[in-house]
Nucleic acid binder design. Structure first.
Lengths: 218, 218
DNA sequence: CGAAACTTTCAACAAGCGTTGAAATTTAGA
DNA sequence: TCTAAATTTCAACGCTTGTTGAAAGTTTCG
């Protein structure tokens, strides 16, 4: 039945699991660490979610729908405002990235952990193929379709490689490794998503135009 | 003492550890899996390398020096050929990426596993800060210095963010998740490093010029 | 209140973990 | 060939893992 004060513990398990999985990966976290972090008995995770893998999937799926619709809304919005000629490359990439920043602005630190988890999964040769497709392929295909319209001379192969570059840059940003902080001597901060996207959008847009622009030889 | 026929087993442990760590991460691999894969007793890994973490470090360090000098040689070579005006952005990025491809062409499949391991470590919020700096910071600083010379109007902050984008695109490529294969319906193949770099070089070079070119406002 | 449903804890399991000391085997050098 | 050193295996340890069945506690609702 719908329970009023029973949600917190279930939710706390998801929250702490999200944070630990993002930091240490699936195998680097034990159910006992999660239980201790949530202030809960070990068996409770099994009661709510089943096997460890089921908990992992539950964490992954919890915010996926909300994130997907936020990004899709952003795409629809910029398509609307651009009328029939369609949005520019910059506008499309903006719609692809900015919602990730809005998620951060809710003040819920869980979103940051969740995005780091996505980065972990997306970069993993084991988890990537198993988990990313089901929840994100449809969204990505829509964005690529929009980019194809904005770059009518592009070959499909070039378009996908360019998206791959975008996806990589984004993934490392979401991972929040702090590496850029150290390298730059503090001039750049991994946690500053806004600065990251402010640089990523013109960077990636220029790349798309260079590779997929009006110069289709061969 | 220098042993002729004792190296194989020690080396086989490193080889299989490299492959498994790259696929499943540090915590996703047990010493018993490694031993079984190498056809060797569990205790032998401890004898040669000490703790599990020491083995992980040994795998990480084995090819680092060779890789670093190959990339540094490539940078020196393009600096030489470009005389006093210095190499172009494209030439520098080419020197940064192509040696990774040469490593693949040796025919040793271990190199591919090694590069996937680098991708795992670089993208990990836990391992990245602990392991990447020591072996790769010096190399990266040299490349950024070369880029700074090729882009004299660039602000340092912009330069580092651009490098971050390059590093991300490269990392996802090295991770070999096969995601681009599926998305593109087979038009792109993760294993085709040459194609990946052929697209990444002009893409990234255009991004650098867009963000770090002659338009430094505020 | 009282019973049913849901939540949480307790206690324990079999299996697998990294690590180690000692024995067995192989190799190297006089 | 004989001996000492290096390599490899054997056997076991103490501990932690994911999972589970039953008990205890809490909430819901007639």
């Amino acid at each position: 039945m719908s329970n009023s004060r029973s949600q917190p513990k279930r939710e706390r398990i998801l929250d702490i699991a999200e944070e630990l999985f993002a930091l240490h990966g699936y195998d680097g976290v034990t159910l006992r660490q999660i239980a201790k972090g949530a202030g809960v008995d070990v068996a409770l995770a099994s009661y709510h979610f089943g096997k460890k893998l089921d908990l992992f999937n539950a964490v992954f799926e919890r915010r996926a729908e909300l994130l997907n619709s936020a990004r899709l809304d952003a795409l629809r919005a910029c398509q609307q405002s651009a009328a029939s000629r369609g949005p520019s490359v910059e506008q499309i990439i903006e719609a692809f990235l900015r919602p990730l920043e809005l998620a951060q602005e809710t003040g819920d630190p869980g979103w940051q952990h969740y995005l780091a988890l996505i980065a972990y999964i997306n970069n993993s040769p084991y988890w990537g193929p198993r988990m990313m497709s089901k929840l994100f392929d449809e969204l990505v295909s829509e964005f690529i379709a929009a980019l194809r319209k904005a770059l009518p001379d592009a070959r499909d192969e070039d378009l996908y490689w360019c998206y791959h570059n975008l996806s990589g840059a984004l993934t490392l940003t979401l991972a929040q490794t702090g590496r850029i902080d150290k390298l730059s001597g503090g001039k750049c901060r991994s946690a500053d998503f806004e600065a990251a996207y402010n640089h990523m959008i013109p960077f990636v847009a220029a790349g798309f135009r260079q590779v997929c622009g009006k110069s289709a030889q061969k």
